[in-house]
Design a protein around this nucleic acid. Structure first.
Lengths: 167, 167
DNA sequence: CTTGCAAAGATATAATATAACATCCAGAGC
DNA sequence: GCTCTGGATGTTATATTATATCTTTGCAAG
């Protein structure tokens, strides 16, 4: 038995559906409005487990529309979703990914596959947040007052390690 | 006694000079060419202990020139300096900062002050690299093969904590 | 001296993000 | 129902960051 998320051969519709439902609950509980647009953007971000660029969202949003949406439309929605902790921004990719644990605020710890770009969030795994403590302690010891953090590891996900062996 | 770097009231010319000298040694030892342009860009990045944008470097580089330099000039120099480990890129700021410990390759751990933007690299402090181990272990335990990392903490540096108390 | 190659110059454009102002629309209070 | 208000969205323009591509330069080995 494992808590590992299987990114291949899973029913991703379930991921999306669950994420949207939880987002609705969270926003309702906080008195925030998950409007149709914001919901749609969230759904598009959840389209895969790979970070998606703002302009990718924009393109998906505009597909089949008479008038394509403009960048601020997407960026505003993404800002809202970030404020609510529903998506994270991956700084090293200028891209966004859905948060699978939006209930509690946390700093993200991400594992980004260099090959397939599938990205997994570690922060809320068992010991996830705790793993930051040594760094925080070191920062504290220099007198720095930490308020936010960004941790992004790049490498190869299990699936791509196998593929690499093939090649 | 402390190993803490004092960023205020220090002779920054010494920092710059030392960085340039060490860079020259490193490049020579590796058979890499620290050309005049690359050296100048490195010096401009070292202009302060705050990350500096590529276009800031570009502006400084062009000041007083007949023809201003073009972006690729700066980006190429920065790419070279990054490859040699002489500067780091701060992803959350789209900016660059001189590495104070370029002799050995390492992942950067940065403390970025939200107020004055002064940025300090922790990676090579005592226990710096080691502080990443719990995260690496966690990543390993998921089967992820880490090849690179990015750690950026934001908050308030000691000096700005005092100022904030004043205000 | 010429040839080969890395570095730098030059031009154009791609990709990401925000500023500023106009309009819309849902809900509160009358 | 009406109107007022404030947040959300639309619209236009532009700022900021980064790269592709081709040309030219300069230096060093043969």
């Amino acid at each position: 038995m494992t808590t590992r998320i299987e990114y291949t051969n899973h029913d991703h519709d379930t991921c999306i559906h669950a994420a949207l439902e939880r987002a609705a609950e969270i926003c309702y509980a906080r008195g925030q409005r998950l409007t149709a647009l914001r919901k749609q953007v969230l759904e598009l971000v959840w389209h895969s487990h790979k970070p998606v660029g703002a302009y990718d969202v924009l393109a998906m949003l505009s597909k089949g529309q008479d008038r394509p949406a403009a960048p601020p439309t997407v960026y505003r929605a993404l800002d809202f979703l970030q404020e609510q902790g529903l998506v994270h921004r991956i700084a090293s990719l200028n891209a966004f990914i859905g948060c699978s644990c939006p209930d509690t605020p946390h700093v993200g710890i991400f594992l980004i596959c260099e090959k397939c770009r599938t990205t997994r969030e570690l922060a809320h795994e068992v010991g996830g947040e705790a793993s930051l403590l040594p760094i925080q302690d070191l920062a504290d010891s220099t007198g720095f007052q930490t308020r936010g953090a960004l941790v992004e590891l790049t490498g190869l996900c299990p699936a791509c390690q196998l593929e690499k062996a093939d090649a």
